[in-house]
C-alpha cells in the first residue's frame, strides 16, 4: 500500500451490518457482522446454497438495504441515501457479473458493453470507444459485432465482465461467475478476473465452489448468514 491509499476509505465497510426480513416470522438472513474490503483486494465469499450468499450480494451490491448496522461503500454511508441516490451509486461504483450473464440477446457484444455505460454518466461520444477498448482488453477483439447467441459461454461471460468494468467501477461484484461454464471456460474467466485484479480492480467473487474461492487473495466463508474469515478483516459483532 502506498502512502496515498491510507487516505482512501475501504471499498466495502460493514459495521455490524445485518438484514432481517420482516415476518411473520422474521428471518435473520444476514447476521450482524463487520467486514472491510480494501481497494485492490480480491475477496472470495464461499458458502453452500442457502447460506446467505445472495443476501450478502444484495447488500454489498446496493440491491437491498440492510436493516441493521451501517454499510459504507467507498466511505459513503449508504443508509443515509435516498433510493435514487443508491441506484446512482450502484450504477457508478459497482460492476455486476452474473452467473447467467444477463446479456441482451438481440444486441451485439459491443452494444451490450455500451449498455453498461448508459446510466452512469459516461458521455455518449465516449461509450463506443471505451466499450471497444474494454472488449479488446478481455480478449474479444474479433467478436465485437457478434450476437450473444453466437458466442461461447466463456465469451459471453467475458462480454458481461467487459460491460461491468467499462464504466470503471470501484468494485467488481461477481455472483457465481463460472457457475454456467465448463472447466476450460471457467479457467479463462478466472484468469481474466485475476488480471483485472492485477490491474488494480477490487474484485469480490461469490461462489459455492471452493476451487473458485481459492483463487481469491482472501477467502471468507458464509454459513447461516454469518461471515467468517481465517485472518484479519472480518468479525462477527
Amino acid at each position: 500500500m502506498t502512502a496515498r491509499h491510507h487516505h482512501v476509505p475501504p471499498v466495502i465497510e460493514f459495521r455490524s451490518t445485518a438484514l432481517t426480513y420482516p415476518g411473520p416470522p422474521p428471518v435473520e438472513a444476514f447476521k450482524p457482522c463487520t467486514l472491510r474490503v480494501g481497494r485492490g483486494d480480491f475477496v472470495s465469499v464461499v458458502g453452500p446454497s442457502g447460506s446467505g450468499k445472495s443476501t450478502f450480494l444484495n447488500i454489498a451490491g446496493l440491491l437491498d438495504a440492510p436493516t441493521g448496522g451501517t454499510y459504507l461503500l467507498d466511505g459513503m454511508d449508504t443508509g443515509a441515501l435516498k433510493d435514487a441516490e443508491r441506484t446512482a451509486l450502484r450504477g457508478r461504483r459497482i460492476g455486476f457479473v452474473f452467473q447467467s450473464f444477463h446479456l441482451l440477446p438481440h444486441r451485439t457484444a459491443l452494444e451490450n458493453v455500451i449498455l453498461g455505460m448508459t446510466y452512469n454518466g459516461v458521455p455518449r461520444t465516449e461509450r463506443a470507444a471505451r466499450a471497444r477498448q474494454t472488449l479488446v482488453r478481455v480478449g474479444l477483439s474479433g467478436r465485437l459485432d457478434a450476437l450473444p447467441t453466437r458466442l461461447s459461454g466463456g465469451e459471453r461471460q467475458r462480454v458481461a465482465i467487459a460491460r461491468a468494468v467499462a464504466g470503471r467501477p470501484s468494485l467488481l461484484l461477481c455472483d457465481e461467475p463460472t457457475g454456467n461454464l465448463d472447466t476450460r471456460n471457467a479457467e479463462s474467466v478466472l484468469t481474466l478476473l485475476e488480471e483485472l485484479h492485477a490491474d488494480g480492480m477490487t474484485v469480490l467473487v461469490i461462489t459455492h465452489d471452493p476451487a473458485v474461492a481459492a483463487r481469491g487473495r482472501r477467502t471468507i466463508t458464509i454459513r447461516d448468514g454469518v461471515l467468517d474469515e481465517q485472518g484479519p478483516g472480518v468479525a462477527a459483532s
Binding site: 482512501v8 471499498v11 457508478r92 470503471r168
Partner: peptide, 14 residues
C-alpha cells in the same frame, strides 16, 4: 492495456 488509466472510481470516491 490497463483499465485504470483515467481517474478511476477510487479517486472519484475520495
Amino acid at each position: 492495456e490497463r483499465l485504470d488509466e483515467v481517474p478511476d472510481a477510487s479517486q472519484r470516491a475520495g
